[in-house]
Design a protein around this nucleic acid. Sequence first.
DNA 1: AAGTGGTCTAGACCACACG
DNA 2: GTGTGGTCTAGACCACTTA
Lengths: 236, 236
Amino acid sequence: MAKSRYLEIYNFIKENINNGTYLPEEKIPSENQLKDIFSVSRNTVRKAIDLLASDGLLSSVHGKGVFVMKKIPVNFLLGGTESFKEASLKNSLKYKTSIPIFETLIVNEELNKKTHFPIGETIYHIIRIREISDEKVILDDNYFLKEIVEGLTASIAMDSIYEFLENKKGIKINGAQKIISVEPPNEEDKKYLDLRGNNLVAIVKNFAYLDNGTLFEYTESHHRSDKFVFSSYAKR
Amino acid sequence: MAKSRYLEIYNFIKENINNGTYLPEEKIPSENQLKDIFSVSRNTVRKAIDLLASDGLLSSVHGKGVFVMKKIPVNFLLGGTESFKEASLKNSLKYKTSIPIFETLIVNEELNKKTHFPIGETIYHIIRIREISDEKVILDDNYFLKEIVEGLTASIAMDSIYEFLENKKGIKINGAQKIISVEPPNEEDKKYLDLRGNNLVAIVKNFAYLDNGTLFEYTESHHRSDKFVFSSYAKR
DNA sequence: AAGTGGTCTAGACCACACG
DNA sequence: GTGTGGTCTAGACCACTTA
């Protein structure tokens, strides 16, 4: 159940898009009609529509109406801020995680250059190897501010770190800056991954921020290049 | 000057972030203070704040206040010495463009599979080669719905297609779904790009939609892997 | 002219954080 | 308790599109 009126309307519209009641490239009922249907103010209807528009599902056009965006032709997506586990579940893949490194470090100049954490901060450094269908294809090189993620253990890291941070510790994550590039594998990649002749890895650098603006995580995900996919929707 | 009150407030806050009046990890004035400063209703202040939050510049925290996000400039995040990456992110690059192919096609089954345009539609197919510092490093394989982009010419494509569509034709673009992968070069890549021994290309597939939901563009950008970089901010 | 979304007001009550 | 942001109302007027 939705806890607010606008989420109720949000879910109603979303459901009607998914089940084909509202068709792509066509209009949904006008804001005034929806306001009467739900007996709410127009602002509440607009809030629901704005949310769906930022999801890329709707588009408001002045004087015309609110259109349903044509369905995005990809349903096997990785990426966004989705964690490895969420992505795997959605794609029903078999995965295994191993953790060859779980250590505590103090940020020195070299680490500061790489992670952008302030020099002197205490951080956890974790390397996780992701095995999918019996092939080690992803190496996650994680750095977390210890102060923020206190209580994190290797067995939690085997599962989902984000699940722990958000649900167990109540940490509010605002979002993350991601930078993707393609580079030759480093020593750790060669040591831990099943490169199978691939001489390049796709690297996703991830700078994650708390709701108050603090940088609390830096992660480099090294993907075997032939197994790498990334997806995002960019509003114009 | 801004044409609406909320944009005025939006620009005011943004300016104060940029010039250091509002500092990262600290709070901006409360919604009630801003409402009095600008003599507007609280909803108008909230609209400005919501916009900046969706830009990733602010973050509202219930009961606490509105925080300025700490943002590390993207060019610092890259590190390394690769001047191309820094330059391309600063947008200070001069592309030289050549157009070996500019043709009109009817969508058949094979093209439908690749572009997702309806079978039977008339489309433009354009291949553009991007040369940077005398190296051909990007191949753009573009497909546009002819009906929408009518009037597009090769000389426009040399410059900026989007500038033409948005400013000259008044086309409203909602956004685009992007999918990134790494693959071996195809025959066209081998023919047109200076691969310099690189045996992989980074491919950005781009599905662009109009405001009414219509898919009007499909583009594959093939980047020589050592010159590829991609950046995005994802809200949680 | 009628209908649509875009902006804005001046309130209200609620939920959360902190001292 | 006080202050903060989160939700919501019941209007109003404006700007754009279509007929």
